[in-house]
Write a protein that binds this DNA or RNA. Structure first.
Lengths: 327, 327
DNA sequence: CTGAAAGCGCTTACAG
DNA sequence: CTGAAAGCGCTTACAG
């Protein structure tokens, strides 16, 4: 229709500078009239790239991830990449399926936001050097994977130092799964602070949850019903912290009058609960942006650092206060 | 390696019943040894289908959508389809890009969870009969699009009848954008209930928000500072309802003692705020499942209904109570 | 600056 | 039940 070969059309569309201005105009006109759009499958086949990055996350419903995703998409989009979101929570077979998108050329790389997938899956891929795999938010401690996350030990320390400064000595921890390295780091930060003050940690004050509201509620309830109940809680995420606050309310305990609660993540909702949540902020969009930049660097065969950490920030609101006098 | 032609390998993998058992075994063995995986781009090109469905939603951070997505993915996955999530919120150009995935063969269909995208985009596609487009949760009232959503008018009526039964006569409404048909339906349900009781609606009690926490907070604050402030609020979603509760708290008003608040959607978080939220439940996973089934029906050239509605349910918790005596 | 031609890796109608 | 062959729609090295 433009009176030129398909080769020229291809060039006019993909590398306009390789084509004369007159031809470019004719092609553009014909494209407009016909409503032509290039077939992406054919292009993928020819170029062996899909311009798609898969992001595997444990739970779409967790508001923590939405900001990470925004950051990820921002960078991806401006580089002409699409983001395919994969929820792995329900079964490990799904994670497998998502990983398989790379060898089948449906995706160019994988960004992992969770360690809750079969370890061998990651290990095998990581061994093939050149498999484009980036980890964000969490990490595997025995794998040399390009990773971007927050200094969890320091983050926890900020929360615990704050509670110690308010006089608390009986501090409980509602941790995420202790198999998770970031949870171990946070717990380490916790212990370090106690040690500096020559305080011992009583193991009965440590409970594990799965980062859900209800885990926080259940574990909080158990701890609050102990005869020497803790006067403060450090929770490994905000949803569990909100669960603890509800447990306290149900037991007629005031927050922060009777119990102080500190969360982790700084999700939006923390500003709207009662009392407003004191928490440790993670720069979620930044994590997302950096992770996608790392991925693009890998795909461009640039060098990428193995691990990179960002800073947290203690956000002081109303859910933590002085240790109660009577205790 | 299996000593057969590529045609036979292809058949052994895609239509095992067309191949002898011995051959099938040889192929399977070779696949295992080589780690072969078929190139999806080539398959897409040949079959002209991508087995990918794009879902366009206004805001990934809104927890309302995560359950819809679960339902969508459940059905998609079991039919061998992938789901590509697209956040359209930030700019309309993105929505355009997502729509373009269909003519370029990168996606087989579009599921829309929002009306907040350029209208012409949808209109043009809808005119091309056969363009695989399904709408869920919301709808365009002047477009004949296969749509699955909830009976919003009835849903609102359940909330309002409940408030009227408790003696409230000054009920405020914090609506979503009134340009949104589902918001008009909800408001209509509201007005119908008042009319049945011979009550007039005072327009000053109607405020619009954008479904965010902060919109609920701001509009709630304005309404609660009126001299004849309402004794009850009907909010078009739960986040705005939570915002109103916070506004009441900041003004030293008790919920539900001084003000009753009812939300819409029944998001998880409603169970963890104080007081727990009374709200109208939407069967979100069902909506998702049905929407994806409609899409698969369209792709299989089966007939699909233009509009299908599901039922809501009033969830009574603690945020709404009797009209205060003193008022 | 442009065209002819080859080839990316599948799938499938056709022939045997 | 199996193979040879064509073709899906691009892109790009090569030649002019």
């Amino acid at each position: 229709m433009a009176g030129v070969s398909t080769a020229t059309v291809s060039r006019a569309l993909a590398n306009p500078e390789k084509v004369s201005e007159a031809t470019r105009a004719k092609v553009a006109q014909a494209v407009r009239e016909t409503g032509y759009s290039p077939n992406a499958a054919a292009r993928s086949l020819r170029r062996s790239e899909s311009k798609t990055i898969v992001v595997i996350l444990p739970d779409i419903a967790n508001p923590f991830f939405s900001d990470v995703i925004s950051g990820l998409e921002e960078v991806a989009h401006s580089a002409g990449y699409k983001v395919l979101l994969g929820d792995s929570a329900h079964d490990p077979k799904r994670a497998q399926d998502y990983f398989d998108l790379v060898p089948t050329n449906q995706a160019d790389g994988i960004i992992l936001l969770t360690t809750e997938i079969p370890y061998t899956l990651v290990k095998d891929r990581q061994l093939k050097s050149g498999f484009p795999l980036v980890m964000a938010c969490e990490y595997f401690d025995d794998l040399e994977l390009p990773t971007i996350y927050v200094d969890n030990e320091k983050g926890a320390s900020k929360a615990i130092d704050y509670l110690l400064d308010m006089g608390h000595t009986h501090i409980a921890s509602i941790s995420g799964p202790i198999s998770n390295p970031i949870c171990r780091d946070r717990h380490q930060g916790f212990l370090n602070c106690l040690r500096k003050k020559q305080l011992n940690f009583d193991e009965k004050y440590l409970r594990q949850g799965d980062f859900s509201f209800s885990a926080g509620y259940q574990q909080g309830r158990v701890l609050l019903q102990m005869k020497d109940r803790p006067t403060a809680f450090f929770c490994h995420n905000d949803e569990m912290a909100v669960g603890v606050i509800k447990a306290a309310r149900d037991l007629d305990l005031k927050v922060p009058g009777d119990v102080s609660v500190v969360g982790f993540d700084n999700i939006k909702f923390g500003e709207y609960c009662e009392p407003e949540l004191t928490t440790v902020h993670q720069p979620r969009e930044d994590i997302g942006r950096q992770a996608m930049k790392m991925m693009l660097d890998i795909l461009a065969s640039n060098d990428v650092p193995i691990r990179q950490t960002l800073r947290t920030q203690l956000i002081v609101r109303g859910s933590a206060g002085a240790k109660p006098q009577t205790h």
